[in-house]
């Protein structure tokens, strides 16, 4: 491959890596807050993609303009999942770790079935996007605009998540993370913070879903394609670390792209997984995880 080709591969890896980072951010947020790994995270992203598809089909509105609507919808879904299921799963006395894994796992299957019930098994595509099919050429490197927009939104979302960390609410989040029981003494309602955390986490992956729908197909198994990568991103970056998710997402995007370019495309995920395992040998809690 020529140098120009490699530059193109690097650009593709970076653009995809930022999407991975955004998908992983919500997962990491929820984990950091309450030690829960949401195995239905990919399905929440799929739900957002179907929401975009349905709203676009009904209203004809440009998918990009639907971003706030879907983010709010997912925020509500996240809170509902917390109140309906997770709060209960956290209150069990026995076997808590497994209960939360399998509650979210069961939820994932349920959401997949529900989407198939509503939209059938066929693949859908959102085509009315004003950026769709446009691409920017910079010195021989092609930068597709839908992915560029997704990357920009990803960076804005990360800035937003970091900014939230500096607000009153952010300090309450931080305090709850540090010591769940002590925060009750200073008048913070732990349940409310957890619920908001779930809302934020779901909204973040909802934003990722909206941007992805601009250049990716929608189908009942689309969550599964991204879920494993999302878990690896979070574990590689360190559970609970926003910066970790960002760095790990980019790293994974690049490793994947270069494994496909220089080795075997069908083994590109093996390359990602190998790097992940290698890092975990030296840093068992990820790149930015607290040891």
């Amino acid at each position: 491959m020529s140098a120009a080709d490699l530059l193109q591969v690097a650009a593709g890896g970076l653009l995809m890596g930022l999407v991975y980072a955004l998908v992983a951010a919500g997962l990491s947020l929820i984990f950091g807050l309450m030690d829960v790994v949401n195995f239905a995270h990919g399905e929440l992203m799929m739900l957002a993609m179907y929401a975009v598809f349905a709203l676009w089909q009904v209203s004809g509105t440009d998918p990009l303009l639907l971003l706030p609507v879907v983010a709010v919808l997912l925020f509500g879904t996240g809170i509902a999942i917390y109140q309906g299921l997770i709060a209960r799963a956290l209150s069990v006395q026995f076997n808590r770790g497994m209960v939360q894994i399998f509650v979210t796992f069961g939820l994932a299957i349920f959401i997949r079935g529900a989407c198939q019930f509503v939209w059938g098994g066929d693949f859908k595509s959102v085509t009315g996007h004003w950026l769709a099919g446009r691409t920017l050429e910079l010195g021989g490197v092609f930068l597709p605009l839908p992915q560029m927009a997704a990357s920009a939104v990803c960076l804005v979302a990360f800035a937003g998540l970091l900014a939230i960390g500096r607000t009153e609410f952010g300090r309450a989040l931080e305090a709850t993370r540090e010591d769940r029981d002590a925060v009750a003494l200073i008048g913070i309602d732990r349940n409310r913070i957890f619920a908001l955390g779930w809302g934020l986490g779901a909204a973040a992956v909802g934003v990722a879903g909206v941007m992805l729908a601009g250049f990716y197909y929608v189908g009942p198994n689309v969550g599964a394609s991204f879920a494993v990568i999302a878990y690896v991103t979070v574990a590689l970056g360190g559970f609970g670390s926003m910066l970790g998710a960002l760095v790990a997402g980019i790293l994974i995007g690049e490793v994947e792209a270069f494994t496909a370019a220089l080795w075997e495309p069908s083994l590109k995920q093996v390359g990602v997984f190998a790097v992940y395992l290698a890092v975990l040998m030296f840093r068992p809690r990820g790149l930015f995880g607290r040891l």
Binding site: R88, V103, I109, R112
Partner: peptide, 13 residues
């Protein structure tokens, strides 16, 4: 799938 997933959630909780 909905029934199967729902069953898992219910039993686990």
């Amino acid at each position: 799938l909905m029934l199967y997933g729902g069953l898992i959630v219910l039993v686990a909780l």
